[in-house]
Design a protein around this nucleic acid. Structure first.
Length: 211
DNA sequence: ATCCCGAGGG
DNA sequence: CCCTCTGGAT
């Protein structure tokens, strides 16, 4: 089948199955989302939400977080992965947010990445969710699943994957498609031994029978 | 044991 | 390009 047909089958299937897939991270403003996404690396959303509940009460906006003691932030987030790094990143991020960006979470990918703890994936999440930009955050799931399905043609890097997905997906589908790929990658198309027996989209999977 | 919606540094 | 950071869930 052509690439266009494959994309169409992908969209048809998931827009029926999970029309409203979205992040489970809890936040009430861009600052909180930025914090939550930085914390989410190698960690479930549920656990992030437990931690951010108290964290946001103590540091309601970037200003207070920018003046915070890294040690205190560490205490709030010690139950998630990489608490030392993330505590440093959060305070550093808040400092730049206040001092360089006048307390406004930037919409530009490059500006976002000037903040510690914010790499391309996190920057794309903000651009997409907060600013409705056609940005695709490529994490480990998106990268792997897109390659397996054949939405990307054996992309070698996340950036390559991102560009190909952006080029082929209708703009309005990009944000949901991100979550479709993640959900599929988390529960069915797992890294080690993909559960092809439980998969309901083998009819357009380029790797079915080959993994 | 093995895996989780990464980023920074060498 | 590879290493490290790291706790919790299953």
């Amino acid at each position: 089948m052509t690439k266009k047909e494959r994309y169409q089958l992908f969209i048809d299937h998931f827009s029926k199955k999970s029309p409203t897939a979205e992040t489970e991270l809890e936040y009430t403003n861009p600052y909180e989302l930025l914090v939550a996404v930085i914390l989410s690396a190698q960690c479930t959303d549920k656990r992030v939400n437990i931690v951010t509940k108290d964290l946001f009460r103590r540091f309601p906006e970037a200003q207070s977080l920018s003046e915070a003691d890294v040690e205190e932030v560490f205490e709030y987030i010690r139950s998630i992965s990489y608490p030392n790094n993330k505590a440093k990143h959060l305070v550093g991020m808040a400092k730049i947010l206040v001092n360089e960006f006048n307390n406004v979470v930037p919409s530009d990918i490059d500006d976002l990445q000037k903040m510690p703890g914010v790499g391309r994936k996190t920057a794309n999440v903000i651009a997409s969710v907060v600013y409705n930009k056609p940005a695709m955050a490529v994490d480990t799931h998106v990268f792997r699943v897109a390659n397996r399905l054949g939405l990307t043609n054996n992309a070698k890097t996340p950036l390559e994957s991102e560009k190909e997905l952006i080029k082929n997906l209708p703009e309005e589908v990009i944000p949901v498609a991100h979550h479709w790929l993640i959900l599929h990658g988390r529960y069915i198309c797992v890294a080690r031994k993909p559960k092809c027996g439980e998969c309901d989209i083998t009819h357009f999977c380029k790797s079915f029978g080959k993994v």
